[in-house]
């Protein structure tokens, strides 16, 4: 646990006050998801899981979805993203964008399954038209965010993997 995890509190506050007002096609970018995916790629999968745990709890606290929805969704997403980090040797800076095209639909689908299983009436129709705009926005958000978090990661020390610049 590091003081840098305070970033998660800032992220959830920005999400509920600023980013929730940035709506394109009925959806807004998910800052918390972008941070967790970036951190899982930059650091070890273990750190990604730890951040996902606290990030998920914060999202659940402020969301109207049932408690546990985003906690489980972020944990699963961080785990899968951590596997990519382990598997790739020399990742390029475009990798986070590509990974987001996998991570964002995975995150939303797991969250929807969680909501359904916790008694929420989830609409499964028009899934592509609903998830695609969110995925594109999340991928756009990770472009400027990733270099910033790489600096934070450098400051935090003990990098798990060396990234080409």
């Amino acid at each position: 646990m590091t003081p840098w995890m305070g970033l998660l509190v800032v992220a959830v506050l920005l999400q509920s006050t600023v980013l929730s007002r940035v709506t394109v096609g009925g959806v807004h970018p998910n800052l918390m998801l972008a941070i967790i995916v970036s951190w899982s790629l930059l650091r070890s999968g273990r750190e990604g899981l730890l951040w996902a745990f606290f990030g998920g709890l914060l999202l659940d606290l402020l969301s109207s979805a049932p408690l546990g929805t985003f906690l489980v969704a972020l944990l699963v997403t961080a785990f899968v993203t951590g596997l990519i980090e382990v598997a790739l040797f020399r990742p390029s800076l475009w990798l986070p964008v590509g990974v987001m095209f996998l991570a964002s639909p995975l995150f939303h689908l797991v969250a929807m399954v969680m909501m359904e299983s916790l008694g929420w009436d989830v609409t499964w129709t028009n899934l592509t038209s609903r998830l695609l705009p969110a995925t594109i926005l999340d991928a756009l958000l990770i472009l400027p965010l990733f270099p910033l978090l790489r600096r934070v990661s450098d400051m935090a020390g003990e990098k798990a993997i060396e990234w080409s610049r």
């Binding site: 999400q15 509920s16 929730s20 969301s63 109207s64 939303h108 609903r130």
Partner: peptide, 13 residues
């Protein structure tokens, strides 16, 4: 105070 933090629910607090 705040808007919903996810894309799956439409709510405010």
């Amino acid at each position: 105070v705040g808007q919903e933090v996810s894309n799956l629910v439409q709510s405010v607090r």
